[in-house]
Structure formats: structure tokens, C-alpha cells
Simulated scan of single mutants.
Amino acid sequence: MFEARRLSAKLILQILATLMIIPYLFPLIVMVQGSLAGEGVGNYRAVFEVGALGTFFKSSVIISVSTILIVYVLTMLAAFGFSKLQIRRKEIYFWMILAALTLPEVVLLTPLFATTLALGVYDTYWAVVLPLAALQIPFTILIARRFIDGVPDALFDAARIDGAGTFTAFRYIVVPMTRPIAAAIVVLTLIGSWNAYLLPLVLIQDPAQQTVTLLPQFFVSQFSNDQTKVLASAVITAIPEIVAYLCLQGLFERGLSAGAIK
């Protein structure tokens, strides 16, 4: 790995890193400062006093955990198949999946609405979980396949000689060796599902199943727009994602860096 040894090089890198992080750090600082304006901590107290806060968090947890499980299982199985199994025309299927990355979420709202109605899952958690998982899977398969490409084929040959089948090799070789990329998948999927706004807004009408991203609506109406409490809601909503990233930071970075190179 490359390393800056000279003091001047380290100083230049530090300045560049600081300049690069400012555009991302500045909005966060403004958000926290704005959430403390006016009533200060009282803004957060007002958010916690919203009766549906616990319900919103429960719905977001259910949707996020369900989406993560679906994305992880399907991603690892598909990435293993694309990387190590002999499947006819698998490259065609792989590029067809990647083509889904070009479809923005807003374009899919109308067909998703019609599909959920036809399947009878409208106004349920599944109406949000399944589309969220489908939107995440193409990218996670892309990075997971690159990671599994780095697993030596000799391990699978040895397992095959010992009589292990495909799913046994997947369970005892792929799953233990792909923990870094699994952490990356968990974090990326959590961010996508926890921050989902359009899909819960359109596909869920039951207030008891709404998510935390709709929490600011309690402080915005026709005759009021309390931005301090809206910002406080945003800060509270972001805390679980920050905690999850800090807990998985090491594995997350290893997974993305290993998935980026062969």
C-alpha cells in the first residue's frame, strides 16, 4: 500500500482531505445548528413528544431489516453464481441486471403502484420492502461479484474433491470469507431503506406503518413551517445510520476496497 513518508506530502494530503470533506461536513453542521435554534433542546423534546415517533421507528426498523435480509441472501447467491458457477449466458444475465441501475426510482413509482395493487400488498410493509430490495440488488451484486472473484478457485476445487456440493461450498467457503463485503451490503442497504421517502409516501397510507422519513411532516402544514423541529427530526433520524456505520466501519471499508479491485 502506498504511504506518504515526507512531512510535506503528508501536509498536502491532509489539506486535500480537509478540503474534500468540507462540502459534506458543512450541511451537517448547519443541520445541527439549525436544530438547536430557537427553543434549543426543546426542538428535540417536541420531536420526542410526537405520539407516533415509536411507531415510525418500529416501521423503519421492520422495513430496513427485511430489506437487508432479502438483499443479502439474494446478492450473495447471485454473486456466487455469476463468479464461480458455470452458467450458460451468465454474462448476458449479469449485464441485464446491471441495466436496472439506469432506472431512477421516481420513474418506477407508477408501475410499482399498479403492481402492488395487483398483488394485493398495497398499504403493507411488503409494498415498500420488495421494491427497495429490487432497487438495491443490482449494485450489491456488482460489488459482491468482484469480491468473490478474489476467492481462490483452489478452495472450491478442494471442497469438490472432498465431496462438498455447491451449497455446502457456498455455506462454508463463501459466507465466512465474504464478511467484509457483507458489512458493506448491510450499510449500503440500511442507508437506502432507512432514508426511503417516496416509496413509503406513495405505497403506504396507514399512519401506523409510516416511516421516520415522514416525521418532519408533523411540523409542516398549510399554516406553519417550523424548520427548527424539521431539522431536529432529521438529526434524530440519522442517528441509527451513523451508529451502524461506526460499528461496521472497518469491515465496510475493507469490503468496498476489496470489491473495487481484483
Rank of each mutant, 00 (worst) to 15 (best):
K229Q: 13
L199D: 07
Y197H: 12
S233W: 03
L214I: 05
Q209Y: 02
V186L: 15
L231Y: 13
L201G: 08
N225T: 12
F223A: 07
I239A: 03
V230K: 06
I191H: 12
T211D: 12
T189E: 00
D206W: 04
S233A: 15
Q209F: 03
V187I: 10
F219L: 04
T213H: 03
T228W: 12
A232G: 11
V187Y: 02
K229Y: 08
L231W: 02
V230Y: 03
T237C: 09
G192L: 01
I204F: 06
T237L: 12
L198Y: 12
S224A: 14
V212T: 13
V187N: 05
V202F: 04
P240V: 11
S233G: 03
P200V: 06
N225W: 04
K229G: 06
A238R: 02
Q217Y: 12
W194S: 10
Y197F: 15
E241Y: 07
V186T: 13
P216Y: 02
Q209M: 12
Y197I: 00
V186Q: 00
T189Q: 00
L203E: 10
L215V: 11
Q210K: 14
N195V: 02
A238Y: 04
D226K: 06
P207H: 04
S233H: 02
Q210R: 14
E241S: 15
S233K: 01
S193V: 07
L215Q: 11
E241G: 15
G192D: 09
Q210C: 01
F219S: 03
L203W: 04
P207D: 08
F219T: 08
L214E: 02
W194C: 10
I185H: 04
G192R: 01
F223K: 06
Q205V: 04
L231D: 07
W194Q: 09
E241P: 05
A196H: 02
N225K: 04
A232M: 09
Q210F: 00
V202W: 05
P216V: 06
I185L: 10
Q222D: 13
L214S: 11
I185M: 10
I204M: 06
V235W: 01
Q209I: 01
I204R: 10
V212R: 08
E241I: 15
V230D: 07
T237A: 15
I204L: 09
L188R: 11
K229A: 06
A232E: 10
L190Y: 14
I239L: 05
S224G: 04
Q210M: 07
P216W: 12
P200N: 12
I191E: 13
Q227C: 01
A208P: 12
L198K: 08
L201F: 13
F218Q: 14
A234G: 14
W194K: 09
E241V: 15
G192Y: 02
Q205W: 01
L190R: 02
A196D: 13
Q227K: 06
L231H: 01
L199I: 14
P207M: 00
T211V: 13
